[in-house]
């Protein structure tokens, strides 16, 4: 009989945990270990890394033989996953380079609306205008957050 991966999710989870555990040990390699009496900065992270990779190995091992009831498979939501995270990074960059509160927010709102499977252009445009206006009112004028409105302001 051939060994088969019974639970792919567990297999990948285990692999990720194992990898992160090893990586933590690798990173903590440079920190002084100290002794049990005087724990150095490397003591706790290295132990945790070891424990995590051990858990990872155990999860991988069990994924080969454990037959779990397989719940309905939900497809990977690639579009919202990539679009939302990407939009937030763009928003962060725009705030970083101080392009202004208004353009950054409008980009954020329009960008993340694209994550939904049906995009209504007019609706999104209206939403971005009204929501941005409301946020400017509440956060800039109401709460006095010190952000510039546009890149040419101040």
């Amino acid at each position: 009989m051939r060994l088969k991966i019974k639970s792919t999710e567990d297999f990948w989870a285990g692999l990720i945990f194992f990898g992160i555990g090893l990586y933590a040990i690798y990173l903590a390699w440079d920190y002084p270990m100290g002794s049990a009496l005087r724990m150095g900065p490397g003591y706790f992270p290295t132990s945790l890394g070891a424990i995590l990779s051990a858990f990872g190995l155990a999860i991988i091992a069990l994924s080969f033989r454990l037959e779990l009831e397989n719940p309905a498979h939900v497809p990977w939501a690639f579009r919202p996953w990539l679009v939302l995270c990407g939009t937030l990074v763009v928003y962060g960059l725009m705030m970083r380079f101080e392009l202004g509160f208004v353009p950054s927010l409008m980009t954020l709102i329009i960008g993340c609306s694209l994550a939904h499977r049906d995009v209504h252009l007019l609706e999104t445009a209206l939403l971005s205008v009204f929501l941005t206006a409301a946020c400017v009112g509440v956060f800039i004028y109401g709460l006095g957050l010190p952000f510039r409105l546009f890149w040419w302001s101040y």
Binding site: L84, C85, G86, T87, L88, V89, Y91, G92, L93, M95, R96, L105, L108, I109, C112, S113, A115, H116, D118, H120, E123, T124, L127, S128, L131, C135, F139, L145, P146
Partner: peptide, 30 residues
């Protein structure tokens, strides 16, 4: 929902940035 979730994300975007005015917090959240 397609109108609600951009509102939630906008609130999160402003909230997280106003913590320390640090864009890195936005990147970390993403």
């Amino acid at each position: 929902y397609r109108l609600l979730f951009p509102v939630i994300i906008t609130m999160m975007g402003i909230g997280i940035y106003s913590l320390n005015s640090d864009p890195a917090d936005v990147f970390l959240m993403a």
